[in-house]
C-alpha cells in the first residue's frame, strides 16, 4: 500500500465572486523513500495540495467536492479533528517557506521544539524511548533530550546553549534548521515541504537541501517538495509532478520528465528557464494567462495557451495516462 495516495481530489474555494474550482482532480502517489517535487506557477494549487494532506485548509470557505486523500489507506478527508491532530507532527511533518515568520517570536526555540516533541511523545512514548504510561516528568525529560539530539542532528552548533535562545537570535538558515528539527522530531513518515528554501540565499539553500536529503535517506521518508525551482527538483527529487491550474499535467520519475517532457506546458516551463548562455533580454515566456478558476473553461485548462491545442481538447478534462509509477501525461494530443 502506498504511503500517500491522492485520488481525483477536487477542492472548491468560496469567494466573494463565487466558487473557484481550485483543485480539479489531483492524482498523486507518494511512497516511502520517494521525494516528489511538485512544481507549477503561483496559484496552480501546489501549496493547497500540500495543506490538504494535513487538512489545514479551512472548511469553509474551502470544500472538498470529490476525491480522497489516503495515508496508509486511511481516508484523511473522513478523519475528525482529533484523529488529524494525532497524525500531524507525528505521521505528517511540515516545513514552510519563510523561516523568520514560522517560528513564534516570543517563545524560546527549545520550548517550541519541546511542545512538538511532547505532543508526539504522548501519542507514541516509544519515540522518546519510554514505555506506555510513563509519568509526565519522565516524558518531559525525555522530550528535552530528544529536542537536544534533534537540534544537534540538524546541525545547530552547541545545541544545549541554543535551546534557551529566541528565534531572532538565529540566522535564517539556522531557523530553517530548527523548523526542520520541529517537523521531524515526531519521526513522521511523510514530510511536506512547502518551498522551504525560497527565502534563503543560495549557499544556505544548498546546505538545507543537503540536510533534507540526508534526513530523508536516513528515515526513509516520503516527501512532497513543493517548489517552483526546477534546478532544485533536478538535484533533490526522485519524482516530479507538474501542476497547472489545479491539475497534475505530467508526473513521473524526475529524469524522464525533465529529460523528455511530453506535455506542452512542461515543455514551455522548461523552455522558460534562462541558462547562463542566454542573451540579455532573450527570456522566453509563455503567451496568454491562466484561465479564471471561477469559471474554468471546459476540458483542458491549458487549451487557451497550448501550441498544440485541437478542437477536441475542450471536450473533457484529460486524465493522466501512463503506467502506474511511470511517466504519465495528461494530454491525448501528444500521446497519439
Amino acid at each position: 500500500m502506498a504511503l500517500l495516495e491522492i485520488r481525483d481530489l477536487h477542492l472548491h474555494m468560496r469567494s466573494f465572486d463565487g466558487e473557484a474550482h481550485v483543485l480539479n482532480g489531483i492524482d498523486l502517489t507518494v511512497d516511502r523513500g520517494e521525494i516528489w517535487g511538485i512544481v507549477g506557477e503561483t496559484g496552480c494549487g501546489k501549496s493547497l495540495t500540500g495543506l490538504s494532506v494535513s487538512r489545514l485548509v479551512p472548511t469553509p470557505p474551502a470544500r472538498y467536492a470529490r476525491g480522497a486523500i489516503r495515508l496508509d489507506g486511511e481516508d484523511l478527508l473522513a478523519a475528525d479533528e482529533k484523529r488529524l491532530r494525532a497524525l500531524r507532527g507525528r505521521r505528517i511533518g511540515m516545513i514552510f517557506q519563510d523561516p523568520t515568520t514560522n517560528l513564534n517570536p516570543v517563545f524560546r526555540v527549545g520550548e517550541q521544539l519541546l511542545d512538538v516533541a511532547l505532543h508526539a511523545g504522548r501519542s507514541d512514548p516509544s519515540l522518546l524511548g519510554l514505555a506506555p504510561g510513563a509519568s509526565g516528568r519522565a516524558l518531559k525529560r525525555a522530550a528535552r533530550e530528544l529536542s537536544l539530539a534533534m537540534l544537534d542532528r540538524v546541525g545547530i552548533p552547541n545545541p544545549a546553549a541554543r535551546l534557551d535562545d529566541y528565534p531572532h537570535q538565529f540566522s535564517g538558515g539556522m531557523k530553517q534548521r530548527v523548523l526542520i528539527a520541529m517537523a521531524l522530531i515526531g519521526r513522521p513518515d511523510l514530510l511536506i515541504a512547502d518551498e522551504p528554501t525560497t527565502a534563503l540565499d543560495v549557499s544556505v539553500q544548498a546546505q538545507i537541501l543537503r540536510l533534507i536529503h540526508e534526513l530523508v535517506r536516513e528515515h526513509q521518508l516520503g516527501v512532497m517538495f513543493i517548489t517552483h525551482n526546477l534546478g532544485v527538483v533536478a538535484q533533490l527529487c526522485s519524482h516530479v509532478a507538474v501542476m497547472y491550474a489545479g491539475n497534475v499535467v505530467e508526473a513521473g520519475p524526475v529524469r524522464d520528465v525533465l529529460k523528455s517532457p511530453r506535455h506542452p506546458y512542461t515543455n514551455a516551463l522548461l523552455a522558460a528557464l534562462p541558462t547562463a548562455g542566454t542573451a540579455r533580454g532573450a527570456l522566453q515566456g509563455l503567451a496568454g494567462t491562466v484561465p479564471s478558476l471561477l469559471t474554468p473553461p471546459p476540458g483542458c485548462r491549458f487549451f487557451n495557451r497550448c501550441p498544440r491545442g485541437e478542437p477536441g481538447c475542450t471536450a473533457a478534462t484529460p486524465p493522466l495516462v501512463g503506467p502506474e509509477g511511470g511517466h504519465r501525461v495528461a494530454c491525448p494530443v501528444v500521446l497519439r
Binding site: 514552510f96 514560522n102 508526539a120
Partner: peptide, 14 residues
Amino acid sequence: QQDYVTTERALGLS
C-alpha cells in the same frame, strides 16, 4: 493569521 500559528497547527499542537 501569522505563519507560526499554521506551523503550530501543522505539527499537531492542541
